[in-house]
């Protein structure tokens, strides 16, 4: 039993150490290294509203072919506003 408790404590320590390496989740105009930023000079297209819906469903829309990946890249800068999120959730990165 004692050995088991020590093992558990060890696990928790490891978790705490790992916790330090996990960044904050990517949020639009948020803080942290993964924050999503988009240049202010572009106006938001109508399709992007409401934002929550668009964030969730943009893969479906793009996969259906109504909008092409290339179209996104007109405003979205790959590193700052695509792959930071894609990398976070483990989705294929945009090249």
């Amino acid at each position: 039993m004692k050995r088991f408790l020590i093992l558990m404590l060890l696990c928790i320590t490891v978790i705490m150490l790992v916790a330090g390496c996990v960044p904050e989740k990517p949020v639009k105009d948020g803080k942290g290294e993964l924050a999503v930023t988009i240049d202010r000079e572009f106006t938001t297209p109508a399709t992007h509203s409401p934002l929550e819906w668009w964030q969730t469903h943009h893969p479906t829309v793009i996969n259906s072919g109504d909008i092409k990946e290339q179209d996104c890249l007109y405003c979205h800068q790959v590193d700052r506003s695509c792959n930071n999120c894609h990398g976070y959730v483990g989705v294929r990165k945009i090249k």
Partner: peptide
């Protein structure tokens, strides 16, 4: 009924 993956992962 897609969930927002970023929130799920967070």
């Amino acid at each position: 009924a897609r969930a927002y993956l970023v929130d799920v992962k967070a």
